[in-house]
């Protein structure tokens, strides 16, 4: 087995009643790689992310994290999820805890690390994303962008092997999008392994090592960003990209 492979997806299939959401996807993500998933709404990209950490039951194929199977509903899932950081569109911070307590919950209760150590690391990470002075605030006292940065820190503090970012700026004002994406760019530069679902094309081009276009539950095109955004192989990709540019 290749040590470098973090996540491996083989023939993944996901069906909701009559609807086939994901229809046979193979995907390999290596250590330090940033993969960006794009595609029209309902193409299955968010569902794919959710399958990767077992939030959805799957109807075919398999997902491996470092060679270990990710299986929905299994007890082993808790262990695996500790190695996967996931950030959602609607932040998902716990409103009854301060930012610092949100960040410290998983390392303290799940990983059972010593409190002093966790606190030092949590504060350092919060400082790094510009939230050092917000540690004692409650999520409702923060702007959307600040909440999302806190949510990123919360996923980061457990030192995950891979981060899954599911349209994390879709609910934010344009100015806040920028501050959040800068944090993500910073992570990519520092070698984090990530799979990012986004509709921000400029960001996708800047952050990605590889861009994947999904449509109708399958991968349509997979290329490095330079190639994908300026000289796409498929007509589908060109058509999709054209919806982001305007001319009079």
């Amino acid at each position: 087995m290749n040590e470098d492979i973090v996540i491996e997806v083989k023939g993944l299939k996901k069906v909701f009643g009559e609807n086939v959401i994901i229809n046979g996807i193979d995907l390999t993500v290596r250590k330090g790689e940033t993969v960006v998933l794009i595609g029209p709404s309902g193409c299955g990209k968010s569902t794919l992310l959710r399958c990767l950490n077992g939030l959805e039951p799957i109807q075919g194929g398999s997902v491996f994290l470092h060679g270990e199977p990710v299986e929905y509903g299994k007890r082993s899932l808790n262990k695996i999820r500790q190695k996967i950081g996931m950030v959602f569109q609607d932040y998902g911070l716990f409103p009854h805890m301060t930012v610092l307590d949100n960040v410290m919950l998983a390392p303290l209760k799940v990983q059972k690390r010593p409190k002093d150590e966790v606190k030092t690391e949590a504060m350092a990470l919060l400082e790094r994303v510009g939230l050092g002075d917000k540690a004692k605030s409650y999520p409702s006292q923060l702007s959307g962008g600040q909440q999302q940065r806190a949510a990123i820190v919360r996923s980061l503090v457990v030192n995950p092997d891979i981060m899954l970012l599911d349209e994390i700026t879709a609910a934010l004002d344009p100015e806040m999008v920028h501050e959040v994406l800068n944090v993500v760019l910073d992570l990519a530069k520092n070698g984090s392994t990530m799979i990012i679902v986004t509709h921000e094309m400029a960001f996708a081009e800047a952050v990605a090592d590889r861009v994947i276009l999904m449509d109708g539950g399958v991968i349509v095109e997979e290329n490095p960003p330079q190639k994908f955004f300026h000289d796409a192989d498929t007509e589908r990709a060109k058509k999709f990209l054209s919806t982001f540019s305007y001319s009079k």
Partner: peptide
Amino acid sequence: IPKHQYESGLALGLGKAQLYGYVIIPQTIR
């Protein structure tokens, strides 16, 4: 309690008892 509260908790690796004990029940009581 919104669904994403459950999912965020699970995604952090919380077990079922931890999820309810630290996340869901405190919010419900409030």
